[in-house]
């Protein structure tokens, strides 16, 4: 969806300000939010693309004014409610009123190592690889109302395939609850002039990782 999370190329946000000796968390609740997200993911309550989509669906003003972990918390509440893991009344009351749904597994202290490991996104290939490194491609001009990983600044642009990363689960499909629908994944590199016009600095190149359905031959 075309919302404010898709920030590449926007102006006006100001300088990047780094904090010296930044701690992992700025308040204990931030750690709880991160850990809950990991635990619910491990349990199979939802996929990382559902978490991303839930954040993207926050009202733009909320997205921009909330802190990072506040966004995570708001998105998690929405996923919990929309997927029927708890009711709004329960979250408001701060207590469960009915037993939980059954989930595939539960993250317990003895398996925390597994909860910290990233799972693989490789999936069985569904068809032949359409592009190879060196091929010129044009990204599609798509504007789905649902989750996509093709950023606006790189739509309808010509680039060159640089790497193929194999066949991955397809976020656009996963976030819409339409299954893994595996797709070939490529690194596609663009010149800055292609993305930002003839006055752009010619020494800059930008790449995205693009799923095959985002690409046509060019």
């Amino acid at each position: 969806m075309d919302s404010v999370h898709d920030m590449g190329g926007m102006d006006g946000f100001g300088k990047v300000e780094a904090e010296v000796n930044e701690p992992p968390f700025h308040a204990p609740w931030e750690g709880r939010v991160l850990a809950m997200q990991r635990a619910m993911g491990y349990a199979g309550a939802w996929h990382i693309d559902h978490s991303r989509f839930a954040q993207e669906k926050l009202p733009p003003v909320t997205y921009l004014s909330a802190s990072y972990y506040q966004r995570w918390a708001l998105a998690m509440e929405n996923n919990v409610i929309e997927r029927g893991y708890a009711s709004p009344e329960e979250l408001k009351a701060g207590h469960a009123q009915t037993p939980g749904k059954s989930l595939p597994r539960k993250l317990t202290p003895d398996v925390v190592g597994a909860g910290l490991s990233r799972s693989s996104f490789y999936r069985q290939q569904q068809g032949p690889q359409k592009f190879k490194p060196g091929d010129r491609v044009r990204t599609r001009n798509i504007h789905p109302k649902t989750h996509t990983r093709l950023p606006r600044y790189a739509r309808d642009k010509v680039g060159v395939v640089e790497m193929c990363h194999g066949c991955h689960m397809y976020p656009d499909s996963v976030a819409a609850d339409r299954g893994d629908n595996p797709q070939w994944l490529y690194t596609v590199v663009f010149t800055s002039q292609e993305l930002w016009g003839p006055d752009a600095d010619p020494t800059i190149k930008i790449s995205i990782d693009a799923f095959e359905p985002y690409l046509d031959p060019a």
């Binding site: 968390f25 939010v33 850990a35 990991r38 635990a39 349990a43 939980g100 202290p109 910290l116």
Partner: peptide, 26 residues
């Protein structure tokens, strides 16, 4: 803070998460 605590309590009481595992992740 209050909302996050409420969320953790509900998810724990529902049996989805174990607060001790959260401690270990943090």
């Amino acid at each position: 803070q209050l909302r996050v605590r409420a969320l953790e309590t509900v998810l724990t009481e529902k049996g989805y998460i174990d607060p001790a595992a959260l401690d270990a992740i943090i």
